[in-house]
């Protein structure tokens, strides 16, 4: 009887430990999955905004054309930047999309600077709406980039730090592979609205 008990107790302890480790492993595994999904999700947030912006560009170009016929060069620049964004989106390469998005943003910035010279254009309601819409999209892209970088950081931290790194397994390969996007400048401060 005493012998049986002496055998049983270590077995029970080992059993409890095994179950505890399994539970911890499961909870870490699920957490890594959640975190890596968050990276994908936050990138798609950037994507959504980039697409929204690309969709607004033809409308903007049409509106500006009506008032500033002589600015063909900047108009072409904007249209081209939009085209290359669409191609980049189709290619599926992340950094190419981000770069094309930045190029479009730069071209739009120059277009709005040129528009300053055309008072009638500046007073056009459609133009004003597009301008607010585009600057709000610009803000959202900046925040989405920040969220994307944040989600990469929390994934990497979870996988690389102790005790997560013990349970990381296949997630270890993923860590450090995600490329952070340079933080974007937010739209300039408006005094009030």
């Amino acid at each position: 009887m005493g012998l049986l008990l002496a055998l049983l107790i270590p077995l029970i302890i080992i059993g409890i430990l095994a179950v505890a480790i399994l539970l911890i492993w499961i909870s870490y595994y699920n957490r890594f999955v959640v975190l890596s999904n968050r990276i994908k999700n936050s990138f798609s947030q950037i994507d959504v905004q980039l697409k929204k912006r690309a969709d607004l560009v033809p409308n903007l170009v049409e509106t500006v054309k009506g008032y500033a016929k002589h600015e063909a060069k900047i108009m072409k620049e904007v249209s081209d930047a939009r085209k290359s964004l669409v191609t980049a989106n189709a290619s599926g390469k992340m950094d190419a999309r981000i770069k094309a998005g930045d190029a479009l943003q730069g071209a739009l910035g120059r277009l709005f600077a040129v528009a300053e010279n055309y008072p009638t254009l500046k007073a056009n309601e459609n133009f004003l709406n597009l301008q607010t819409e585009l600057s709000s999209i610009e803000d959202k892209i900046a925040y989405a980039r920040q969220a994307y970088n944040d989600s990469i950081m929390s994934f990497d931290n979870a996988v690389m730090t102790f005790p997560g790194n013990i349970f990381a397994g296949k997630f270890k390969e993923q860590a450090g592979q995600y490329i952070k996007i340079p933080e974007a400048e937010r739209a300039p401060v408006k005094v009030s609205f």
Binding site: N41, A147, D150
Partner: peptide, 16 residues
């Protein structure tokens, strides 16, 4: 209330 919606949407994006 566009400005308000924008602010909330921005923060929703930032906080995921």
């Amino acid at each position: 209330h566009r400005a308000l919606y924008d602010a909330v949407e921005n923060m929703a994006i930032a906080s995921q």
